[in-house]
């Protein structure tokens, strides 16, 4: 357990030392969302209709952009090899790194989301459910994305490849995340969608550290 916390602390330290880097992801998120009113026109009704979808898609893309660095720097400076040699299970190490990734990117996205929802004229009833759905969904994104981030280590043109690998796997989270918000805005309950998002999170929590650890092992072999 101490090792687990130490890795989280180390990754958070690194993120804060680099300062603006993790803020950049939030800025990308904001700018990507702000582009939509220019693209589809400023009518309040249309924006309110697509608000949940736009915010979720932008969150997916920003989470994916930041994933490339999840293992890349450790892989390049050799610390990944040391981590695989440590007595701790590699699955736990992966989990710790994912937690740190979520704290530095997923959490800021959740904080920024209500502001963007205001800009897109989203119905105020949708705000709490948007935050709740993002809180359940973004950890799943980090977990699934960790598998992709581990697979592309050492490949040519990793970033574009990562998008091709993991965006299709993000689709279920996107569908239920948006549908939860749309249900509440439309006057229904979102219990089922939230339960399914929670189910995805638990499933990803149980399975993806294994897959990511297997991918890391063959990367440092």
């Amino acid at each position: 357990m101490t090792g687990f916390l130490q890795i989280i602390r180390r990754d958070l330290h690194l993120a804060f030392r680099q300062g603006m880097d993790s803020m950049m992801v939030v800025m990308f998120f904001v700018i990507a969302v702000v582009l939509f009113p220019f693209g589809v026109g400023p009518e309040a009704n249309i924006l309110a209709r697509i608000a949940a979808g736009v915010i979720w898609v932008a969150a997916l893309l920003s989470s994916m952009l930041s994933l490339e660095r999840l293992f890349q720097t450790d892989y390049e400076d050799g610390s990944l090899e040391l981590l695989t040699l440590s007595p701790m299970a590699l699955e736990i190490i992966v989990l710790a790194k994912v937690v740190a990734h979520w704290l530095t990117t997923g959490l800021p996205l959740i904080v920024a989301a209500p502001l963007l929802a205001v800009l897109l004229n989203m119905n105020a009833e949708g705000f709490p459910i948007l935050i709740l759905a993002l809180a359940l969904g973004t950890p799943s994104l980090s977990l699934i994305g960790a598998v992709g981030a581990a697979l592309i280590l050492g490949s040519r043109r990793g970033g574009v490849l990562l998008a091709l690998l993991i965006l299709p796997l993000y689709i279920p989270v996107l569908i239920f995340g948006v549908s939860a918000v749309d249900a509440v805005v439309g006057g229904f309950e979102a219990r089922a969608q939230l339960l399914i998002l929670g189910g995805f999170l638990l499933g990803a929590l149980a399975l993806s550290p294994w897959a990511a650890a297997a991918a890391l092992r063959q990367a440092v072999e």
């Binding site: 598998v147 697979l151 592309i152 050492g154 490949s155 690998l165 796997l169 993806s208 897959a211 297997a214 991918a215 063959q218 990367a219």
Partner: peptide, 12 residues
């Protein structure tokens, strides 16, 4: 390397 990585991907 490519074969191993993509085998993991296809199982995921």
């Amino acid at each position: 390397r490519g074969i191993k990585a993509s085998s993991i991907l296809v199982l995921v």
